[in-house]
């Protein structure tokens, strides 16, 4: 008798449990959103405030839209060359990772070969190597081969970092194009190459662009290799890391702001394809 009383819930109790579950769920969502959004918001507020407001107490939670620190930043010596270095490295990374990654993605989606799943796993495992571990031997190697402190050398390292994603994203994009479309094209007078350029390429172009932008962002955000492997030709991240350490607080915020904004815009533009990468939304 007693046992039954414990195990059977009244409708009211069940309702109560549902409510608690829902509260927990909502709280979790709010905490996660705050985790990401709050630092971004504070960065935004402080970057757009005057130095006085940034250093004063209590803190301001509404931006003043004062561009003093941002303008100071844009006139900072070495800033523009660092920015142009960053863009150059990111563009080379973008091109190399697509040129190397897309054929691998195509092969993964179209052909069956021994060790295919192991290969997919290995691609991801390249990301498991901590960069600091690789950076020192790389620096030595680069100095020996004369690649140190060059845009191309750094782009090589960034390509290595971006390549796994390029392969996996393009794999999922190619998988979204039915093989029958290619096969029909072959019967209609195409060879493998023209079948690809006339049928597959137009269909995957937006996805490839997304994958390229993702590679760009990876390179743009990378700081460790950039700091170790470049001295004169610093990228923006390495340049800021070097200089912001000794800068006043309001300039640190402005520097962070400059770094975050392009990455945010790019990721926002290609978010649909990044979901596809993990097989969540297959158009």
């Amino acid at each position: 008798m007693i046992k039954e009383n414990i195990s059977i819930l009244t409708p009211a109790q069940i309702l109560q449990r549902h409510k608690i579950g829902r509260y927990l769920y909502r709280t979790l969502i709010i905490v996660l959103c705050a985790w990401v959004l709050l630092p971004l918001y504070l960065l935004f507020v402080n970057a757009l405030s005057s130095s006085k407001a940034v250093n004063s107490f209590p803190k301001n939670f509404v931006p003043e839209f004062d561009f003093e620190s941002l303008i100071f930043f844009s006139q900072f010596a070495g800033m523009t060359s660092a920015l142009s270095n960053s863009i150059k490295v990111a563009v080379i990374t973008m091109i190399m990772s697509i040129v190397i990654g897309a054929p691998a993605g195509y092969a993964l989606s179209r052909f069956d070969f021994r060790g295919k799943s192991t290969f997919r796993l290995l691609i991801l495992l390249t990301r498991a190597f901590p960069l600091p571990l690789l950076a020192l031997p790389l620096a030595v190697l680069f100095i020996r081969t004369g690649l140190d402190d060059t845009i191309f050398g750094l782009a090589l390292v960034h390509t290595t970092l971006a390549l796994p994603f390029a392969v996996l994203i393009t794999f999922s994009i190619f998988s979204g194009v039915p093989i029958e479309l290619e096969e029909v094209a072959w019967t209609l007078g195409c060879n493998r190459l023209t079948g690809f350029t006339k049928v597959v390429l137009p269909l995957i172009l937006p996805g490839i662009a997304a994958s390229a932008i993702f590679a760009f962002v990876i390179s743009w955000n990378e700081v460790f290799a950039a700091a170790v492997l470049t001295v004169e030709n610093r990228t923006l991240t390495a340049f800021l890391l070097q200089n912001l350490d000794t800068s006043p607080l309001h300039l640190k915020f402005a520097g962070g702001f400059i770094l975050v904004i392009p990455a945010l815009i790019f990721i926002f533009a290609v978010r649909k394809y990044l979901f596809a990468m993990w097989g969540i939304a297959n158009r």
Binding site: P178, E180, L181, E183, V184, A185, W186, T187, L188, G189, C190, N191, K198, V199, P202, L203
Partner: peptide, 27 residues
């Protein structure tokens, strides 16, 4: 396939989604 003088109709039709019906037939 292109040199065999054949044409193929698939079960799922395999219409090129990026081309109009005209361009599909004329492909």
């Amino acid at each position: 396939p292109k040199d065999r003088g054949i044409a193929l109709v698939f079960q799922n039709y395999a219409i090129f989604p990026h081309l109009s019906v005209f361009e599909n037939i004329g492909f």
